[in-house]
Amino acid sequence: MAELKQTQQRQWGMVIDLDKCTGCQACVVACQSENNIPINEEAHYNQRRAIQWIRVERYWEGEFPDIKARFMPVLCQHCDNAPCEPVCPVYATYHNTEGLNVQVYNRCVGTRFCANNCPYHARFFNFWEPAWPNSLKNQLNPDVTVRSRGIMEKCTFCVQRIARVKRKAKNEGETVNDGDRALSPACVNACPTETLFFGDFKDPNSTVAKMKDKETHGGRGYHLLEEIGTDTNVVYLKKVDKHAEAKEEVHA
């Protein structure tokens, strides 16, 4: 992976500031409509077959009167050392030159090996043929494939948006700008509290690279399940807990 990292042009990644997340699920809905994900009905949740490329995990902390809700958006971490990639027998998932872990729907036969091997549970299987109500038929995004049944899918960091911006930049001789809303995935654009940041870790001047640099060295930054060694491209920033800090100070 190290050699690949040196030759590759970009390293798309995300920074998620958990201190800002309110758990509003706007990112989930934005992702749903951008990426042609079928509507998750109650039955799908009950069968545990709902598809959510980004999900907001909710945890409770503390006992009743002193209870706090904690939110954590989880999406595909686009690991540099992705466990899902080597196990696919047909190369339906692989690492591209921009640090993205991409899924090739046409190649997928649906062994679900990758889903088992994803420590983040960010991969989703199409158990049924996707269906939309008639009123939503015309809402589908023409840039995104509608996945048939029997294959895996997952967050792509809205690769179609990245591709569009790059194409436009190439045609019009511009550069791809950091923080361009057209470049950012739907979830990042939809987030009302600016929890999510998207950009190129390879570019030292990008917002995410600066944040990563600052926060992972003694700051609030961490990667999910670091001990598995997946080397992810999503950096989480720890929640700043004023109450806990205050308590600690009192104790001290």
């Binding site: 545990r48 649906g110 679900r112 989703f124 299987f125 043929e129 049944r149």
Partner: peptide
Amino acid sequence: NKGVGVTGLNRPVMW
């Protein structure tokens, strides 16, 4: 004809 949905498989238990 219908898809893998007719089995009892679901998200954590993919096999």
